[in-house]
């Protein structure tokens, strides 16, 4: 629609911007590329000095070993369990924390109530304590409640960890939405609830997507808490699973990287699906028309 108005100057500009963006992203991706390549290298290349930058041969051995396809290795990594547990915990905690966070964020952004600021600050307090300090008291509590080894219990913790983030973000995004829009909806006969559903929530979709991505990845990568609460292999997620590849003295770099590659796949799919909602505020123009 505006293509006809684009000047040659603008086109050049956009090529420069696009290539510059690619350049930066590729530079940022280099360490990741190295990690991914390590998963496919032959053993002799991994510790070679000077390092071999571009692999001379590609092997899937590490993946075969992980799935127990190598008859010479007795041990077997519980990848399926890690995958299932990670997905269950990350997805469920994302859905719950984003839902609860959206509700609370809406309340903070739209309504004045007693202890507004105090409540908001309490949320911050809960984000100041790292897993290493939370894990032991939580472990005590969960042992009493019988929640150790439980995926639901773990998910519960992750929900709590992700909620403050979700609330802040949603509060910020709801505040971006012009009040007149919501008020217009009231005039059109919408109640609070349907104004929220029909007007505010769709407009805050980029915020929702952002919150969901970070909640998902935070749960996906969390290590300290799950390593204390999950007491057997069957209830672990990927990050403690990575420690399968550390021995007393050595680290199996290739195995660890291979598992990380496997671990990336669901995360990439989730991000690809979710980031679609990061769209320019199409709606702001819409109301004017």
């Amino acid at each position: 629609m505006i293509a006809s108005r684009v000047s040659p100057h603008r086109r050049l500009n956009s090529i420069i911007i696009n290539s510059f963006a690619w350049l930066i992203l590729i530079a940022l991706a280099l360490p990741a590329v190295w990690i991914i390549l390590t998963a496919f290298r032959s053993n002799s290349e991994i510790n070679a000095s000077p390092p071999v930058w571009i692999p001379r041969e590609i092997t899937f051995e590490a993946f075969g070993n992980m799935f127990g396809l190598n008859p010479n290795l007795q041990q077997r990594v519980a990848v399926e369990a890690y995958m299932f547990n990670s997905l269950f915990v990350a997805l469920s905690s994302t859905v719950v924390s984003v839902a609860a966070g959206t509700l609370a964020g809406y309340a903070f952004s739209r309504f004045k109530f007693r202890f507004h600021t105090a409540a908001f600050l309490m949320l911050m307090l809960s984000r100041t304590v790292p897993g290493v300090a939370l894990s032991l008291p939580l472990f005590l509590l969960f042992t009493r409640l019988g929640w150790t080894n439980s995926l639901v219990g773990l998910s519960f913790v992750y929900v709590a960890i992700n909620i403050p983030f979700a609330i802040w973000l949603m509060d910020g995004f709801f505040r971006q939405i012009p009040r007149d829009l919501t008020e217009a909806a009231y005039i059109d006969g919408c109640g609070y609830w349907s104004a929220f559903w029909r007007v505010d929530l769709p407009l805050a979709l980029p915020g929702l997507a952002t919150a969901a991505i970070f909640a998902f990845l935070a749960s996906w990568n969390e290590f300290q808490i799950v390593s204390v609460l999950a007491r057997n292999n069957a209830s672990k997620t990927f990050p403690p699973g990575l420690f399968t590849f550390t021995e007393q003295f050595t680290i199996d770099w290739r195995g660890m990287c291979a598992m990380s590659v496997l671990m990336m796949i669901p995360a990439i799919i989730f991000v690809i699906l979710t980031q679609r909602n990061l769209v320019r505020g199409l709606t702001f123009g819409a109301i004017k028309g």
Binding site: N18, A21, L25, L28, A32, M263
Partner: peptide, 25 residues
């Protein structure tokens, strides 16, 4: 990235790759 006209979706996904590794790794 806000200015990028083409391939923004791929770029955003690429951007997030570092976060997909566990911090311990």
């Amino acid at each position: 990235l806000a200015q990028v006209t083409r391939g923004q979706a791929i770029m955003r996904t690429m951007l997030m790759i570092p976060m997909m590794f566990a911090p311990i790794l």
